[in-house]
Every structure is written in C-alpha cells, then in structure tokens.
C-alpha cells in the first residue's frame, strides 16, 4: 500500500485540521506544510484555496505561495500577492516580494509581477526594498553571485 503523503510525519488530514486553529502561527505552518505536500497530494488544493481568505494577511500570502507552486496560472493566488504588496505592514509586503521572487519565471504573470515589485523599490522600509531588489533579479531569471564574493573582491 502506498504511504500517505506527509510533512514531518504529519498527514494531510491533520494539517488540514490545523488550518482551523485559532493560532495564526499554526495556520501559517499548516498552509506551508500543505504546500510542501501538495505536489504529492492534490486533494489539498481546495483547502489551500480556502486559506486564501484567512483573516491574517501573512497566512494568505503563504497559502498563495503554496498554491502557486502547483498551479502558477491561478488568478486567485496572484490577486493575494498583488494585495499583499500594498499591505500596510512592511513584513507582509516584504514577504510577498520574497515569495514572488522565489516563484520567479515559473509564475504565469511574471511580467505583471515585475511591475508591481518594481514599485516597492521606493518603499520606505529598507527590508522591503532589499527584498524587492532580489525578487526582481529572480523574476527576471537572473541569478545572484554568492554574497560573500562581493566582500572578498572589495576587501582584497
């Protein structure tokens, strides 16, 4: 019998139950876990779509990221990212930019994402700006050299 897909030894069913937790940290973990499992258990897609409406914006972003990994063409995930890039909380904006960068050119609407992320280059928060810069590299399909190489070269 095929082994039931799990993340860290916890089954899809248990992670799905955790989506109902009152603790947003647990809900975030659950959507992340489902995102890790989803490539092997598409039954969880529906639960991830439902999590796009979570009351916490960062949980929504993680759900969108998980969904975009297996269904990059879905508009619901992209809409969550677009809203998160304009969230009032800097860490949510930064998180959304980071996820978009990670998805990179696999994202169906990568060109559109580049426009939205470019706007964050003028963000008031340095962390958001840095994350946006890196995300743009990745969305454009450019790799970054190892970070220490710059230090080693400039210090020599």
């Amino acid at each position: 019998m095929a082994r039931e897909p799990d993340y860290l030894g916890v089954s899809v069913a248990e992670w799905t139950r955790a989506l109902k937790s009152e603790n947003p940290i647990q809900r975030r973990l659950a959507v992340y876990a489902l995102g890790e499992i989803v490539p092997r258990a598409t039954s969880a897609v529906g639960d991830l779509i439902a999590a796009l409406d979570d009351p916490q914006p960062y949980v929504r972003v993680w759900a969108a990221a998980a969904l975009a990994r297996i269904a990059p063409e879905r508009d619901e995930a992209f809409a969550v990212f677009r809203a998160a890039l304009q969230d009032e909380l800097a860490f949510v904006r930064s998180l959304a930019a980071w996820h978009l960068g990670r998805l990179g050119s696999r994202l169906a609407r990568a060109e559109e994402a580049i426009d939205h992320v470019t706007a964050l280059l003028d963000d008031a928060n340095p962390s958001v700006r840095a994350e946006a810069e890196l995300a743009l590299h990745q969305l454009s399909g450019k790799g970054a050299p190892p970070v220490e190489l710059r230090s080693l070269v400039s210090g020599s």
Partner: peptide, 20 residues
C-alpha cells in the same frame, strides 16, 4: 515556518537555484 517537535523545532524547505 518552524514546526515544534518535542523541545525542538524542525522545517524542511526547498531552495531554487541561486536562492539564499
């Protein structure tokens, strides 16, 4: 996101080429 297991934490993650 870290997952608590006993008195420790665990996470598995995938990094794309070039990602840190």
């Amino acid at each position: 996101p870290l997952c608590q297991q006993g008195d420790g934490v665990v996470v598995e993650f995938l990094l794309n080429p070039g990602e840190t």
